[in-house]
Protein backbone atom coordinates (compact mmCIF):
# COMPACT_ATOMS: atom_id res chain seq x y z
CA UNK A 1 0.00 0.00 0.00
CA UNK A 2 1.37 3.38 -0.93
CA UNK A 3 1.50 6.10 1.68
CA UNK A 4 0.65 9.64 0.68
CA UNK A 5 3.47 12.19 0.53
CA UNK A 6 2.15 13.92 3.64
CA UNK A 7 2.19 10.68 5.61
CA UNK A 8 5.75 10.00 4.51
CA UNK A 9 6.79 13.53 5.42
CA UNK A 10 5.35 13.24 8.95
CA UNK A 11 6.73 9.75 9.30
CA UNK A 12 10.24 10.73 8.27
CA UNK A 13 10.23 14.07 10.07
CA UNK A 14 7.79 13.66 12.92
CA UNK A 15 6.98 16.96 14.62
CA UNK A 16 7.01 17.34 18.38
CA UNK A 17 8.11 13.88 19.40
CA UNK A 18 8.77 13.47 23.10
CA UNK A 19 7.34 13.80 26.55
CA UNK A 20 6.56 16.47 29.13
CA UNK A 21 6.77 15.78 32.83
CA UNK A 22 3.48 14.35 33.99
CA UNK A 23 3.94 16.08 37.35
CA UNK A 24 3.59 19.51 35.71
CA UNK A 25 0.03 20.71 36.43
CA UNK A 26 -0.04 22.45 33.04
CA UNK A 27 0.40 19.13 31.27
CA UNK A 28 -2.51 16.95 30.22
CA UNK A 29 -1.84 13.42 29.02
CA UNK A 30 -3.98 11.30 26.74
CA UNK A 31 -3.21 7.62 26.26
CA UNK A 32 -5.01 5.46 23.74
CA UNK A 33 -4.42 2.13 22.09
CA UNK A 34 -5.88 0.07 19.27
CA UNK A 35 -6.14 -3.64 20.02
CA UNK A 36 -6.58 -4.48 16.33
CA UNK A 37 -3.04 -3.44 15.49
CA UNK A 38 -1.48 -3.05 18.94
CA UNK A 39 -0.71 0.62 18.36
CA UNK A 40 -0.13 2.78 21.42
CA UNK A 41 -0.33 6.56 21.32
CA UNK A 42 0.49 9.15 23.95
CA UNK A 43 -0.44 12.78 23.38
CA UNK A 44 0.53 15.48 25.84
CA UNK A 45 -0.76 19.03 25.81
CA UNK A 46 0.69 22.00 27.63
CA UNK A 47 -2.26 24.18 28.53
CA UNK A 48 -2.16 27.76 29.83
CA UNK A 49 -4.36 29.08 32.63
CA UNK A 50 -6.57 30.61 29.97
CA UNK A 51 -7.14 27.19 28.48
CA UNK A 52 -4.99 27.67 25.39
CA UNK A 53 -2.82 24.82 24.14
CA UNK A 54 0.65 26.26 24.16
CA UNK A 55 2.62 23.20 23.17
CA UNK A 56 2.09 19.52 22.35
CA UNK A 57 4.21 16.40 22.24
CA UNK A 58 3.50 12.85 21.19
CA UNK A 59 4.96 9.41 21.36
CA UNK A 60 3.43 6.73 19.17
CA UNK A 61 4.34 3.12 18.63
CA UNK A 62 2.56 2.05 15.50
CA UNK A 63 2.44 2.17 11.75
CA UNK A 64 3.34 5.14 9.55
CA UNK A 65 -0.24 6.38 9.44
CA UNK A 66 -0.57 6.33 13.23
CA UNK A 67 2.67 8.27 13.62
CA UNK A 68 1.67 10.77 10.93
CA UNK A 69 -1.78 11.24 12.46
CA UNK A 70 -0.39 12.03 15.90
CA UNK A 71 2.38 14.22 14.49
CA UNK A 72 -0.17 16.23 12.50
CA UNK A 73 -2.42 16.61 15.52
CA UNK A 74 0.39 18.13 17.61
CA UNK A 75 0.79 20.79 14.93
CA UNK A 76 -2.92 21.44 14.67
CA UNK A 77 -3.70 21.82 18.37
CA UNK A 78 -0.99 24.36 19.08
CA UNK A 79 -2.49 27.79 19.71
CA UNK A 80 -6.01 26.41 19.88
CA UNK A 81 -8.33 26.61 22.86
CA UNK A 82 -9.40 23.36 24.49
CA UNK A 83 -12.84 23.66 22.93
CA UNK A 84 -11.42 24.27 19.46
CA UNK A 85 -9.07 21.32 19.84
CA UNK A 86 -11.87 19.02 20.93
CA UNK A 87 -13.60 19.92 17.67
CA UNK A 88 -10.88 18.24 15.57
CA UNK A 89 -12.45 15.29 13.78
CA UNK A 90 -10.77 12.15 12.60
CA UNK A 91 -12.19 12.83 9.15
CA UNK A 92 -10.18 16.08 9.00
CA UNK A 93 -7.03 14.16 9.85
CA UNK A 94 -7.77 11.38 7.37
CA UNK A 95 -8.49 13.89 4.65
CA UNK A 96 -5.36 15.95 5.27
CA UNK A 97 -3.16 12.85 5.18
CA UNK A 98 -5.13 11.14 2.39
CA UNK A 99 -5.41 7.99 4.50
CA UNK A 100 -6.80 4.92 2.74
CA UNK A 101 -9.90 3.28 4.28
CA UNK A 102 -7.88 0.57 6.06
CA UNK A 103 -5.94 3.27 7.92
CA UNK A 104 -8.90 5.37 9.05
CA UNK A 105 -8.62 3.85 12.52
CA UNK A 106 -5.25 5.60 12.91
CA UNK A 107 -6.98 8.96 12.58
CA UNK A 108 -9.68 7.85 15.02
CA UNK A 109 -6.93 6.96 17.46
CA UNK A 110 -5.45 10.46 17.12
CA UNK A 111 -8.84 12.10 17.67
CA UNK A 112 -9.41 9.91 20.73
CA UNK A 113 -5.98 10.89 22.03
CA UNK A 114 -6.95 14.58 21.95
CA UNK A 115 -10.20 13.77 23.76
CA UNK A 116 -8.38 11.68 26.36
CA UNK A 117 -5.86 14.47 27.00
CA UNK A 118 -8.60 17.06 27.39
CA UNK A 119 -10.47 14.76 29.74
CA UNK A 120 -7.30 14.38 31.78
CA UNK A 121 -6.97 18.18 31.93
CA UNK A 122 -10.57 18.57 33.08
CA UNK A 123 -10.16 15.88 35.72
CA UNK A 124 -6.98 17.49 37.00
CA UNK A 125 -8.61 20.90 37.16
CA UNK A 126 -11.83 19.65 38.69
CA UNK A 127 -14.06 20.79 35.85
Amino acid sequence: MAYSEKVIDHYENPRNVGSFSKEDPQIATGMVGAPACGDVMKLQLKITEEGIIEDAKFKTYGCGSAIASSSLVTEWVKGKSIDEASGIKNTDIAEELALPPVKIHCSILAEDAIKAAIEDYRTKHGE
Binding site: M31, G33, A34, P35, V40, I104, I108, D112, A116
Partner: peptide, 20 residues
Protein backbone atom coordinates in the same frame (compact mmCIF):
# COMPACT_ATOMS: atom_id res chain seq x y z
CA UNK B 1 -15.91 -4.26 21.52
CA UNK B 2 -15.32 -2.97 18.02
CA UNK B 3 -11.81 -3.94 16.95
CA UNK B 4 -11.20 -0.45 15.64
CA UNK B 5 -12.41 1.27 18.79
CA UNK B 6 -9.74 2.83 20.92
CA UNK B 7 -8.76 1.30 24.17
CA UNK B 8 -8.31 3.58 27.13
CA UNK B 9 -7.21 1.62 30.18
CA UNK B 10 -4.60 4.14 31.27
CA UNK B 11 -2.48 2.00 33.55
CA UNK B 12 -2.39 -0.77 30.98
CA UNK B 13 -1.42 1.58 28.16
CA UNK B 14 1.31 3.18 30.28
CA UNK B 15 2.74 -0.29 30.78
CA UNK B 16 2.51 -0.97 27.05
CA UNK B 17 4.41 2.25 26.41
CA UNK B 18 7.11 1.14 28.88
CA UNK B 19 7.38 -2.24 27.20
CA UNK B 20 7.70 -0.61 23.79
Amino acid sequence: PNEQASFSDNAFLMRQMELR
